[in-house]
Design a protein around this nucleic acid. Structure first.
Lengths: 173, 173
DNA sequence: TACCACGGTTCAGTGAATGAACTAGGGTGG
DNA sequence: CCACCCTAGTTCATTCACTGAACCGTGGTA
């Protein structure tokens, strides 16, 4: 972080977190990784993000331990990016931020509906199942599907795959 | 948002939220407002933020309905910034992000400890009281105090006031 | 061999953030 | 009356972050 003023003067954990995830595009990369996106090209197409930014963000997240880089083929060499346990725990802030937006910034209904894999109940902003009451649901216990407010006009592979219900963390597309 | 590429291609609530709160410094301004900081000079001193950035962020947050600008004196004219109901609901993402940082990015103990005003129990990352089980605690039911990991080397008025337990949303310093 | 797909890298140009200085409207004290 | 102080901004040249467009390297395929 090279800007003249960084958050060093802030001895607080929020600032530490924001130094890592607060740069433009980073939270959306993390969100996509939690949905199950793994490959550079899929992040690129789904997020419509500049290539250099995506490369740099992935490097940063791997170095920080949020994502893990894994070889999925040797010829030619190809890596994918998988959330670590540390990265999976960012699900809660991602959910809280997204639900705030659903509640306050959405003029149509919910764009994405998150439900509990085991009982089908809706998930609230604290990752609690409103159906059965299960709390602290990790991402692999959550299914995402389109809500009534989602405009379905994207045709990249990830957007197409997310037209169907999809369990978080399962590879996409 | 004038960068060549914005988040318009992302029909998702997380992107809508990040367009508002994702700019550099904004989440820290909101965090301070939730702690109870009200005045331009106090945000300025506590955050050590460039003046022009603070002015612009406050304007944006007022226009978006997250903060409300209120006259606190007429001669000379002086306004303060108070979280709206919409702004107070950002407490949950702020807490979730901060707690993630406490858990994964802190080499010493907790910098800030959040507890339930009514029973004194600790608050977890979902705004649930670990003492009595009360859920969805709003900020005005939460008290913040320094934790064992906080370096107490700041001497601006807000930092000094936060050396004592402080109920969120109560004006600071 | 030419073309394609993939996962990057490079770089000039544009926009955001920054430090430093300045402004306006009061209030206070000598 | 004037000088100084405080507060809440505003201005602007400079630096840094992001971007579009082009390019690169390593394979695989027809």
């Amino acid at each position: 972080m090279a800007l003249g003023k960084n958050y060093d003067g802030q001895d607080c954990s929020l600032a530490r977190t924001l130094e890592l995830v607060g740069e433009r595009w980073t939270m959306l990369v993390i969100r996509d990784a939690l949905y199950g996106v793994r490959r550079y090209g899929d992040f690129l197409a789904h997020l419509d993000i500049p290539r250099a930014v995506l490369s740099q963000r992935l490097v940063t997240l791997v170095e920080a331990g949020v994502l893990e880089r894994r070889r999925y083929q040797d010829s030619p060499p190809r890596d994918e990016y998988v959330p670590t346990a540390m990265g999976r725990e960012l699900w809660l802030p991602v959910l809280a931020l997204g639900q705030w937006g659903e509640r306050h910034l959405s003029r149509r209904g919910a764009r994405r509906v998150f439900s509990h894999v085991d009982c089908g109940g809706r998930i609230d902003a604290t990752a609690t199942c409103t159906g059965c009451g299960a709390e602290h649901l990790p991402p692999d216990q959550v299914e995402v599907r389109p809500g009534p407010g989602l405009e379905d006009d994207r045709d990249d592979p990830v957007s197409v795959a997310l037209r169907e219900p999809h369990r978080l963390l399962d590879p996409l597309p």
